[in-house]
Design a protein around this nucleic acid. Sequence first.
DNA 1: ATATTATATAAGTTTATGGTTATATAATTA
DNA 2: TAATTATATAACCATAAACTTATATAATAT
Lengths: 86, 86
Amino acid sequence: MEREKQAQIFKALAHPTRLIIVEKLLEGERCVNDIKDLFDASQPNISQHLNILKYSGIVDFRKKGNLRCYFLKDSKKLEKIIQAIK
Amino acid sequence: MEREKQAQIFKALAHPTRLIIVEKLLEGERCVNDIKDLFDASQPNISQHLNILKYSGIVDFRKKGNLRCYFLKDSKKLEKIIQAIK
DNA sequence: ATATTATATAAGTTTATGGTTATATAATTA
DNA sequence: TAATTATATAACCATAAACTTATATAATAT
């Protein structure tokens, strides 16, 4: 079970778009709009990537008016992982 | 390109079987036979997982008679990644 | 040379991913 | 309340991943 969970985190990180999102969130929370502007991908596509990160437990969000601001649930851990892969 | 490469490493690690293989190889090189015995998966299945790790640049092998001994190409890096995910 | 052991490769099937376009929902503004 | 903005969800399609079984190859032993 432990390995499945770890594998799932790796799977969530196994996409350039999601890696870039996570790196952005290492700087602090960001609303979807800001995240979307990092890419020229479609809005639903970004939303789906965010959902994958959410589902895997890497990010969560809070509402701020009609915005959704995503943040890393454990930025220390992510920091380490991102650092280690370089 | 850098992100694609990192994503590919994550993808290679995004499977319980391959995670276990990598953790085993952290102890030192191992022949396919020994690796196979860690699982009750089929021989071709293990071979395919090893190939994925090879293709992604995580492992390499050397021949020793009719055995193939796999080893981590950068065990320090893998050590860090595996540590960070825990 | 033949058989055996260790391992890889191929072909086929099933399920999962990653993207698109269209549509829904929720909050804000007019 | 109607329109707008921000975002998610659904339906769909194409490609890739993960297995299985069958077969090939390479080294060793007989």
